[in-house]
Design a protein around this nucleic acid. Structure first.
Length: 243
DNA sequence: GTACTGATTGGCT
DNA sequence: GCCAATCAGTACC
């Protein structure tokens, strides 16, 4: 059976009286209200980031990516959760050296590195540091800023709740990415771009997710970063703490 | 709310 | 041949 086929819920008997529940007031807990879904995105205020922004250690770049905007056409996502992967890191894809897949990781910072995970999910990373370093930052979660309908269509989910964009596979899907986007420059207009954005007031840190195969030192390293107070954070949340 | 599990494909140790 | 930087559906509490 295809994944896309959805389980149909049984139709409720027509005799059931459904009372209209009083709606909860909408939570204004999203990270930054500046541009919102209903408030179209203004490009002038948030210039595209230049290559020099990326030429630093992935551990420094990762928290600086929080609050920045990923844009592809009308879809704009604000980054809310990231993880750093570094040279000599037993969890980094670059740990076996340059291969056809990982070559972009060893290129200069400012490019995308997109790989297929579990044969299903396109995971977006942002290459960090100087050419030859072999470092990147995984984008784990985002908050929708514009293009909600396109995001929902690509995700196959008609919701504004956080399930829409909390998880690296979901971010890749929402942006319509495939491995063909690997090595795409984020500092040139067109395609996928990274725009400047507001710095979060507070951040959370924790160990990275899904890297149990790595050495203890790297499993325990607190190289995951998230925007404090944002609902747009993937599971597990209980391992995140203030620095 | 949490727990478990099957899906699916390319890269490599 | 093994297994991965995951997700969504289902069952049960």
């Amino acid at each position: 059976m295809k994944r896309t086929q959805r389980f149909k819920r049984p139709i409720k008997p027509t005799t059931t009286i459904i009372k209209a529940k009083p709606r909860k007031p909408k939570l204004q807990s999203q990270f930054q209200a500046e541009p919102t879904i209903s408030n179209p995105f203004s490009f002038e205020k948030f210039p595209i980031l230049t290559p020099d922004f990326y030429q630093i250690d992935a551990l420094d770049l990762a928290p600086r990516l929080l609050g920045k905007y990923l844009r592809r056409d009308e879809v704009v996502l604000q980054i809310t959760e990231v993880e750093a992967y570094r040279p000599n890191d037993s969890a980094c894809h670059g740990r076996f050296g340059i291969t056809a897949r990982t070559a972009p990781v060893f290129g200069p910072g400012g490019h995308a590195y997109v790989y297929l995970c579990y044969g299903l999910h396109s995971m977006l990373n942002i290459v960090a540091d100087k050419e030859g370093a072999g470092a990147a930052v995984l984008i784990r979660s985002c908050c929708p800023v514009s293009g909600l309908e396109t995001i929902q269509q690509r995700r196959g989910l008609k919701t504004e709740k956080s399930v829409l964009l909390t998880g690296p596979g979901k971010v890749g899907q929402a942006l319509g990415l495939s491995t063909e986007w690997s090595n795409h420059p984020l500092f040139t207009p067109g395609g996928l771009e990274l725009l400047d954005g507001p710095e979060p007031e507070n951040i959370l840190i924790g160990p990275r997710v899904g890297i149990e195969y790595a050495s203890a030192e790297h499993v325990n390293a607190l190289w995951r970063f998230a925007v404090a107070g944002s609902p747009w954070i993937s599971a597990p949340k209980n391992s995140l703490r203030p620095p």
